[in-house]
Design a protein around this nucleic acid. Structure first.
Lengths: 251, 251
DNA sequence: CGTTTCATTGATTAGTCTCAACGAAGGTGG
DNA sequence: CCACCTTCGTTGAGACTAATCAATGAAACG
């Protein structure tokens, strides 16, 4: 397991945060940006395959993803792994570690990532002086919960084919909202092992399920990733109505 | 489907909140209690089987459970149901409906419940003037996320027997922390259909799995509920390390 | 006293897992 | 530059887990 590579370079001052550019992202007040500039302690560049946060660590910082893909996961003692959710630009990670005692899950980079690093001990300060930002954090926590609800429904009650279709429709829509979809197409940088650990299936059965979806033209498997081709077909197969398009905050 | 029964009677003023009595629950400041008294609009008494919150409703209030059992769930179009988590005294429910546009899940009472009802539109006021309470809400949202992480790990990666053992160990510990366990025993007011919809299994297989656990003496199935007998055995079977015993807030 | 809900059980079927093997691609070191 | 190794995707066969179908009994209810 690779360790994270820290980088002191700060390429993105908060008033030029790259997240500002995304369509549904709510902008901050001047005062808030000023505070956030101090709240932010730097940037972390993580290579693909890197573990960004480890379960059990309590020294965790708080991060916002500026670019790249990652995933949250938990493992059982014997090594069985469950991927809980994927992490995309705009997502806040490490809140559990800040609010509770320690992180109960790990986070790993799927692609090179740039993370905005916040100072955990200034969080009370944020709550005291910037109620709107505090509300934003709560909003983001609620959203994560809502995503988990839907993922749990899927893993618990959908068939393998429906589950796989849901997963890629879901990822596609999330990616679309942060401008990662180019020309209606998207390449998700995962292996089939990742997909298996997300869906709660074996890797063999995952392969057979993905081939079915590929056979229908819903997606195509590439070198080391999945190209989503037909969002609508995936939604039809899974019976998933899609994500509501609402304005969203970020920190 | 029964509808909820509203009750105007207010039996519990905030300074005598029954949740104060529980061991790990953090107490509030006087000022906070004063605010909460205004934040609270009344109490809701729900009978067993009653739907407290419906998916899609956006008029939802915010509630804290004062007593009784409930569960959160989602359903697919064809009726397949997934129970997401159980709801016990001290839990805050309806936050998704307050923070996002609308609820994406429903909540139903398993036993008679008493809920503390809050006025959703005063939530910004709370964030503005009571940062500690705002932090508490975030804490509770984080905790829900953490529970969901663990449930998802279980549904995705544990065997049927491990899953069932985990479920009742988990419920037992949560119930213990709010003094619902008497003499080391607990009766959970669920049917096997509830258990099946929690574990992502069919009802037939759930029955066979529960009989195995009963055969080993870990639990006993009663009239309409499950009596947890051997917490340690359930933890051993599931390989679940248990809940951390930390002080927790409530609203 | 019929009706409904819930738990239970056996038989059969379907879905998924494990085992095993192999090919393709990429990386590494000699 | 090539031989070797590793990772990843793929496929088939057989075993096993869990779903479905079907039927029954017990208790609660109106």
């Amino acid at each position: 397991m690779k360790t994270t590579t820290a980088s002191a370079a700060r390429q993105f001052p908060c008033d030029k945060c790259p997240l500002q550019g995304f369509p549904h992202f709510q902008l901050h007040e001047k005062e808030e940006i000023k505070f956030l500039s101090g709240f932010k302690t730097g940037e972390l560049v993580a290579d693909a395959g890197t573990t960004v946060l480890v379960e059990g660590a309590n020294s965790a910082h708080l991060f916002t993803v500026l670019s790249g893909w990652g995933f949250r996961y938990k493992t059982l003692d014997d090594g069985r792994r469950q991927i809980l959710n994927y992490v995309l630009p705009g997502d806040l990670i490490g809140l559990q570690g800040s609010v509770m005692k320690e992180m109960q899950h790990s986070i790993e980079a799927l692609s090179p990532m740039i993370l905005c690093v916040f100072q955990r001990d200034k969080l009370p300060d944020l709550f005291r002086n910037f109620p709107n930002l505090a509300y934003d954090i709560t909003w983001l926590a609620s959203r994560e919960e809502q995503m988990l609800d839907e993922i749990l429904l899927s893993v618990g009650r959908r068939t393998a084919l429906e589950r796989a279709a849901y997963l890629f429709a879901f990822i596609f829509q999330r990616a679309k909202s942060v401008a990662m979809v180019k020309n209606g197409k998207l390449t998700v940088p995962v292996t089939q092992q990742h997909v298996a650990d997300t869906l709660g299936l074996s890797i063999v059965h995952t392969n057979k399920t993905l081939r079915k979806l590929a056979g229908r033209g819903a997606l195509r498997w590439l070198d080391r990733g999945c190209e989503v081709l037909d969002e609508q077909m995936l939604m039809d197969i899974s019976g998933w109505p899609g994500l509501p398009a609402a304005p969203r905050p970020y920190i």
